[in-house]
Design a binder for these strands. Structure first.
Lengths: 221, 221
DNA sequence: GTCATCATGTAAGCCGTTACATGATTGC
DNA sequence: GCAATCATGTAACGGCTTACATGATGAC
């Protein structure tokens, strides 16, 4: 009886993963989501903000309002340079600061439970291409062993797909486009599997790689 | 003028595409959806049946209950090839001694407006990988010129993605997984573009569609 | 007569979309 | 003071999922 935990959403994974690197507010988050590799997530604000609210309610992130104060010196119109630098005002636990009329930026930070949740999402074995790309993008936040689990699980899923495709007896598939599509799919699967093998190989001797998700981190909340 | 039509759903495309080949009832449709190339659509009945109801309401399909009555005076204006041997009960391993289904299998057939809608969905240029795979799968239902439009539109989209990826200045990408992912994505994009080029080539003098398109397995592992 | 499979549906709830509404900051 | 951009939300709507409910058929 493991915890059921809510179903994984791609957006949740992406948000938590991005917040591992920087504290961000919604608007900036949307930009970074769109820049994610593999045909980025183009969410609308109408889904992003409710998602952040859900994450906050679930305790995965904590938000701090910046009520029109400290601003960094450099304008930085730049593409994807992250100037956060604005989280210093924090130090106490959640302080409402809900003054109506003075809406500030709301900067989100991942919490310790949020990190646990992220690990869970990264290890989720739902067979979803889009989600898997994201899992690789954030793979550095896993410990090497978990990472290997994640990669080899995926490898097995792709191999299974390949087996199913190969075992297809080509029934009435006289359609040239269907044929070409299946062939192309199989070639893609083979390539993806090879890529995963390479990643797995390169992870074998990585015992201390990147910054690892560590639930014992303190000082957050 | 943009399309006043409803937003395209992957499922709608898949259903209409499948119904071009055979008249089917929901249960069978679900099985075939799962078999579609490229990580098939695993819809649940709870979404399939409402979807069929919507399609029927929209006039894209017509349904006939198989309960020993209501022999359909098929509307079929015969605009396109109706190669379907309508309402045959496919004999499986066991011989159907009786009409099964008193309360009724509901067999769906695509209508003429449904064909128009399918064409619209096939030509829809929404940048969606899953949907595009389906469009190729049903590409034979387009006229060669439309097919070329569809393929080259997609080609341009992928080329654009590739351009964006290449133009990325590699900012703080010291992360090996992010790097590997981007590299892999670019390689995949290149492969896909090459594949589209091959499809386009094979469609150039394709006036009757069928004998060209000789896919060559490129360096299978 | 009962079980597995075939077959069709409904209901509650979440999630995402578009469209709408508001406010804050910066540059001219 | 005005526009563009930054920034955060709400509301209406619809689709998809899970879980539930129903019923028929054929095998044993």
């Amino acid at each position: 009886m493991s915890r059921p935990s809510k179903p994984a959403s791609v957006m949740e994974l992406a948000i938590l993963g991005l917040l591992m690197d920087d504290d961000l507010h919604g608007y900036e988050l949307k930009k970074r989501l769109a820049e994610l590799p593999g045909a980025g997530i183009n969410v609308s604000f109408g889904s992003l903000y409710p998602a952040l609210a859900r994450l906050e309610r679930a305790g995965s992130v904590s938000a701090v309002r910046q009520s029109g104060a400290v601003s960094p010196a450099s304008p930085m119109t730049g593409a994807l340079s992250g100037e956060l630098a604005a989280f210093r005002s924090r130090g106490r636990t959640t302080e409402p600061t809900r003054e109506r009329g003075r809406r500030g930026k709301k900067v989100y930070r991942i919490t310790v439970p949020g990190r646990v949740r992220l690990t869970e999402l990264l290890l989720d074995d739902t067979d979803d291409d889009r989600a898997f790309n994201l899992r690789v993008a954030f793979a550095s936040h896993l410990e090497p062993e978990q990472r290997r689990t994640m990669l080899s699980t995926r490898r097995e899923q792709l191999a299974e797909r390949l087996r199913e495709l190969s075992a297809r007896p080509t029934p009435s598939k006289s359609d040239p486009f269907l044929l070409s599509l299946e062939e192309h799919d199989m070639a893609s699967l083979n390539r993806d599997i090879t890529w995963l093998d390479a990643l797995l190989d390169s992870t074998i001797d990585d015992n201390e790689q990147g910054d690892v998700l560590n639930p014992t981190t303190t000082g957050g909340t």
